[in-house]
Design a binder for these strands. Structure first.
Lengths: 251, 251
DNA sequence: GAGTGGTCTAGACCACCTG
DNA sequence: AGGTGGTCTAGACCACTCA
């Protein structure tokens, strides 16, 4: 691992005011690249800290700091006595990382999904804006209904750039899309930005959710980003909140 | 700083399967106690790492790890070359730590507040449940309207246990309540749990917000906790989301 | 230049898991 | 018993801030 600042100039001294990048950050980037390129698959055991340190030519403490940062970003999972693993975000527990709707009563279980429609077309204005796409870009749209504990509660439309997810329209879609993105297309969702509004259900969505038109609902406008913070999915969800709520924990 | 596991038994060996607590965690708890007891005031400069290490009888690295953890919990702010400071959560920027409502258009500025009513009474069922209070507990209730960029957008009722905030009903209330809690009552808000629902505005709140009855609105049920995770404030807010949205970032 | 936090290293020991 | 991550230490050097 070279101990240099970033940028094209070689052997720039570390003392440069601009462009200084700590060693552990460079290690972080190196490992992140391997994760983003799916060199290491979800669930896989990474080499030990000592092995990574030897391979990269840095001390174990520096590798540890990079691994800790990746763990804090929930890209890795560390288990004392066993090793460091690539995080799996399709676990029963991890479904809830991006699904914040909870039954008012405790419990509830895993959300269920049913695809209503699947189509392809040219990106519209909203899709181009959310996904940062050129005017001629093609997108795949998925419309589906979701239930929790047998109760219909979400109607959503998902838009994906076809360039990033070639042939996804021909696959049978699982309940948890994000694990499909990771395993079939090498795209790991790192963060998501959600904008929430209270709206009244339009006639069409009301019928799908088997509720009267004009029922209040929570609209969630979500853009999901990959590990390099590029937008890769846009999702517009209408959620019933009569027996459910959206949980947000602020720190 | 004693190097022992927690619990009443003295000199328990560190190898105990249960009750083992790392040294840096003990340092964390010690410093957290000083912050909770307001030994160090917001904005104040802490002793340097070396001084704390000498005082507590541990290495600088251990103190650093505790300080880093407190910084991650946003209780401290570290500035290279200057020192470590107690976080101030009443900054222009930090108002938005717990205020997630944003204008759809960029900008907006600081939210403004106007108190409508102030009353005292015995805690009702909701208040006892949210704030974990006994049946005879007294609470202070604050009802207020908030605006962003001159637009009326929030109507909320805040309930506080009078035992924790004695005499707060006699004070003139600032726009940012949480800084008042910290400076006047030594209570620092560490986390908050919000439950969101879409509802229709009742007549009374609709009138206050100058909107028609039945307008869809976002209901935010917030319980704010102090540094020891005890609930200290309950707040029920009704928010207009015609020109605003609630921003949630998931990682 | 002095003092602070930030990085990096090397080594020791501990707690945990598996065989 | 051996390997892994987790903790703790001590010391060196770097980057930043301010007088």
């Amino acid at each position: 691992m070279r101990r240099s600042g970033s940028g094209p100039s070689t052997d720039a001294p570390r003392g440069e005011t601009v462009g200084y990048r700590p060693l552990y950050r460079q290690v972080y980037d190196t490992l992140l690249r391997r994760l983003a390129d799916a060199v290491w698959q979800p669930g896989q055991l990474l080499p030990s800290e000592g092995q990574l340190a030897a391979e990269l030519g840095v001390s174990q403490g520096t590798v540890r700091k990079a691994l800790d940062a990746l763990t804090a970003d929930s890209l890795l999972v560390r288990r004392q006595g066993r090793g460091t693993f690539v995080a799996e975000h399709d676990d029963q527990q991890s479904v809830f990382r991006f699904f914040k709707l909870r039954p008012d009563a405790d419990g509830g279980g895993i959300p269920d999904s049913r695809v209503l429609a699947l189509s392809r077309g040219t990106a519209n204005g909203d899709e181009r804006e959310r996904l940062d796409l050129p005017r001629t870009a093609q997108v795949v749209r998925i419309e589906r209904l979701r239930s929790v504990a047998g109760r219909l509660c979400v109607c959503e439309t998902i838009s994906l750039p076809e360039s990033l997810f070639p042939g996804i329209a021909e696959l049978s879609l699982p309940n948890t899309l994000y694990s499909l993105y990771a395993t079939r297309f090498g795209i790991t969702i790192g963060t998501a930005r959600e904008r929430l509004k209270a709206i009244l259900l339009p006639a069409r969505e009301a019928a799908l959710l088997e509720m009267p038109e004009g029922t209040p609902a929570l609209e969630i406008d979500r853009v999901a980003m990959d590990l390099e913070e590029r937008p890769v999915e846009w999702r517009l969800s209408l959620c019933l909140t009569q027996d459910m709520h959206y949980l947000s924990v602020l720190r």
